[in-house]
Design a binder for these strands. Structure first.
Lengths: 191, 191
DNA sequence: ACCTGAACACCGTTCAAGT
DNA sequence: ACCTGAACACCGTTCAAGT
């Protein structure tokens, strides 16, 4: 089993090492930190090395995005297992996922990114669609009609996206707020 | 009364001309289009000219942001005049403002921007806070208690921010959706 | 197969010199 | 007061040459 860290084993790099370091930079310092000169310094090689692995900087970006997309999909499929839980609980879990985003930096950067990269845009859409559907279906199961479920699920997902961008004029919502929110979204039956 | 266009009158530029052109570029082609070499080409001068008016590119950015902020504040104060309208109508107007953003490009760019520029962040906060308060107060006027009003107003504002960023996995909301939404947010009394 | 080193284009920044 | 022109640093990109 090959190691991905350049520190262990061979001194040569694989494309993987660049992607990994790039994703790490994206999460800690944001999109602006991904410079190939910076990556070279971090990885201890010269620029020529980079251009052996990638055709240009956009290609690296694409690879980083792809890796993030894969991980996000895995996370979503893990979330799929919540289908056994009661509907209100499912809604609550989706709400929490929207808020306590651990890698907030990535989410923001990828949204900027999605403007220019259709692959990234596709995975973001997939994620939003997934969450929307879980909430929507849970609401239908609770007895809401199609239109009511659509409106409420849409509102929740959009609000979730907004959380990631809000300038906390309004305080960042807490876990309690999420509970209240679920109570409101599915309130007619929850109370 | 001095003209701001370099085409009329003198051939010399004022700082204003750079800001105006920069804001135009921001709206039409996004943040990435603001290069000082590009601006020089558009305005028909050399880079030295730019550096007579501004200390660096960040300073231009700041000036562009400031101008946008001024315009946004004016727009908000115009919106203040809706205070005479019935509460539900006020909520509906705020909802519409959040959606039919004509200069969507600017809003997105400025949010990126706000991460690094606290002035821009401040005006974004102001805007969000303003809309939040209008909705909140309208809800209180409709008979909601403090906590219910806070939750609902917050949800609406965050959803509005989310609209600007959603990858339309879910369809962009229409004016009718906004009406339905208002019916939901203030539903207990509206129906 | 993976990397160095030197080259080049492009962009931000500076500054002496021009009107 | 406003601008030119030439210079320099920095970054992305290319490529011949090395192991």
């Amino acid at each position: 089993m090959p190691k991905s860290s350049p520190a262990t084993g061979s001194t040569r790099l694989r494309a993987d090492d660049w992607v990994e370091r790039g994703l790490a930079l994206l999460m800690t310092e944001g999109l602006g930190a991904i410079k190939i000169s910076r990556l070279c310094r971090d990885l201890g090689v010269t620029k020529g090395s980079f251009y052996w692995h990638f055709s240009d900087v956009d290609s690296l970006m694409g690879a980083i995005a792809e890796r993030w997309c894969t991980r996000t999909r895995e996370e979503l499929s893990r979330l799929h297992k919540v289908q056994g839980l009661p509907p209100l609980e499912r809604i609550r879990l989706m709400g929490l996922r929207l808020v306590d985003e651990p890698s907030e930096h990535v989410e923001r950067a990828l949204r900027e990114w999605a403007v220019h990269d259709s692959d990234v845009a596709a995975v973001l859409r997939e994620t939003e669609q997934f969450i929307f559907e879980v909430v929507h279906d849970a609401l239908v199961e609770l007895g809401y009609d199609e239109e009511a479920a659509r409106l409420r699920a849409g509102l929740l997902v959009y609000a979730g996206i907004g959380f990631a961008y809000g300038q906390q004029a309004l305080p960042k919502p807490t876990a309690k707020d999420i509970n209240d929110l679920v109570g409101f979204i599915a309130g007619d039956v929850a109370r």
